[in-house]
Structure formats: structure tokens, C-alpha cells
């Protein structure tokens, strides 16, 4: 059953082999972009997500499985928590060496 305050949810995890952040897609596969995640808009769908997560963990495909809340925006799903936004978008800093070198030159 869904209440008025229900927030859309997605299932996220880290891939076992390399730890990369993944989300459960509509086709049941783990996808690399939050945009492609399956959006659970009612309690029954959330229950299905949870079951899928438990199964994926048991199958040793992913680790650290969790259901997170997202806001549906015109640009796609956006997690409420900054932590999850950073997981979805990657570090907010230019961490690659080329960027670091540019910063150094500016020093």
C-alpha cells in the first residue's frame, strides 16, 4: 500500500568484482547509471526490490545492497541524500592527474 508521503525508491549496491556503484535496472540487470534504475513507486515494488537485492547478494554479484529514496526530477532520479548523489555522480572534485597537474601549474 502506498501513502501520500511515499518516496520513490531504487536499489543500489557495489559490484563485487570491482566495487563500482550499480543500481538495479528495470530489466533486472545491474546498471551503471542511476538514470537507468528501476523506480519503485509503491510498497509492493519496494518489496520486490528488497527481494532482488537479497538474491543478488546471495548470488555474490554485489555487496552493500541498500534501498535509497530518490526524487523524480525532469533530469531523472535524484537521491535525497548527498552521499547517494555522490555515489551516483562520482567524486565532486577533479581527481584525475591531468586536473591535478593543472592545479599545480596554477600554484
Amino acid at each position: 500500500m502506498t501513502t501520500a508521503s511515499f518516496k520513490t525508491k531504487v536499489l543500489t549496491a557495489n559490484r563485487l568484482t570491482d566495487g563500482i556503484s550499480v543500481w538495479l535496472g528495470a530489466n533486472g540487470e545491474w546498471v551503471f547509471s542511476l538514470k537507468d534504475a528501476f523506480l519503485a513507486r509503491h510498497d509492493e515494488a519496494v518489496a520486490a526490490l528488497t527481494a532482488a537485492g537479497d538474491q543478488a547478494q546471495a548470488d555474490n554479484r554485489v555487496v552493500d545492497v541498500s534501498v535509497i529514496e530518490i526524487e523524480e526530477t525532469p533530469c531523472g532520479p535524484r537521491p535525497y541524500r548527498l552521499r547517494e548523489r555522490i555515489r551516483a555522480d562520482g567524486p565532486t572534485i577533479a581527481y584525475a592527474p591531468a586536473a591535478a597537474a593543472r592545479a599545480s601549474e596554477a600554484a
Binding site: 572534485i93 581527481y95 592527474p97 591535478a100 597537474a101 592545479a103 599545480s104 596554477a106 600554484a107
Partner: peptide, 14 residues
Amino acid sequence: KPIGGIPGDASADQ
């Protein structure tokens, strides 16, 4: 600690 850089990071080349 280059200005505007990431404290403690070093590239492989560095």
C-alpha cells in the same frame, strides 16, 4: 598541497 589541489594526492608521474 598545490594551490587548489587535493591534499595528499600525487599522480603516478609525480
